[in-house]
């Protein structure tokens, strides 16, 4: 087995291990929010699309790291994007929580000026009730930018791999491959969380729904605070 293949296997395993510890804590709330929000639809396809988006972003970042071999320069460059992703995640979780609870109808938020056909109202409605399967791919692409310690560690390895590889093209591929492997490794744990939180009979119970809404709003606020402080 070559050193690249060994690294791929190492980071696939790392993703799997980190998934059941770190990712459940950091990305778990997002996945739970999505699952609770998917009221009647199947969970598997939207979740897989979300993870496909997330892994694509990881792979793209890995490609950039591989090409440049400069971890600190690239992370400094995408710092504001990551901050934005964290704030976006917080907002979307809060909106989903509000939308799911039914406590805050759109009319109350927008007051007398609320127009259902307005751009803001439509965007709000879309964000607070994401149930279109296709929407989960771009969500994954954006939220793949969320700052995360283990992702950074994998990116350091991708940058290191890039420096060891002779041609830029191969360096890009090596970096992308490593990050894709890491991302794939994290999927089983998050699918498990989605499966547990999205059980049909559980979602049918109103009280769980209300508790879920409160937790989602709380987690969203936590993400917002972390995002603004980041």
């Amino acid at each position: 087995m070559s050193s690249i293949e060994t690294l791929y296997l190492t980071f696939l395993t790392t993703g799997f291990i980190v998934g059941f510890g770190h990712c459940i804590g950091m990305c778990g709330p997002i996945v739970v929010s999505f699952s609770l929000n998917l009221k009647t639809k199947g969970l598997m396809v939207p979740n897989l699309l979300y993870h496909a988006g997330r892994i694509t972003t990881y792979a793209l970042l890995g490609g950039v790291m591989g090409a440049t071999g400069a971890f600190t320069r690239v992370t400094t460059g995408i710092g504001s994007l990551q901050k934005g992703a964290m704030i976006f995640a917080g907002l979307i979780i809060i909106l989903m929580g509000l939308g799911m609870s039914g406590w805050m109808p759109l009319g109350k938020i927008f007051g007398d000026y609320y127009r259902p056909e307005g751009i803001i109202a439509r965007s709000f409605r879309k964000l607070s009730g994401i149930q279109s399967t296709a929407a989960f791919l771009p969500l994954g692409l954006v939220l793949g930018l969320l700052p995360c310690g283990p992702v950074y560690t994998a990116l350091i390895a991708a940058a290191g791999l890039g420096m060891e590889t002779q041609s830029t093209f191969n360096a890009v591929l090596a970096g992308m491959g490593l990050m894709a492997m890491f991302g794939i490794g994290t999927v089983p744990s998050l699918l498990m969380v989605a499966r547990l939180s999205g059980m049909g009979w559980l979602r049918s119970r109103n009280i769980i729904y209300k508790i879920g809404s409160i937790l989602m709003i709380g987690v969203g606020i936590y993400f917002l605070i972390k995002g603004f402080r980041y």
Partner: peptide
């Protein structure tokens, strides 16, 4: 059990 699990999950992670 599920309520407990959700509660524990957020308790220990957040």
């Amino acid at each position: 059990l599920i309520k407990l699990w959700i509660g524990m999950f957020f308790l220990f992670t957040i």
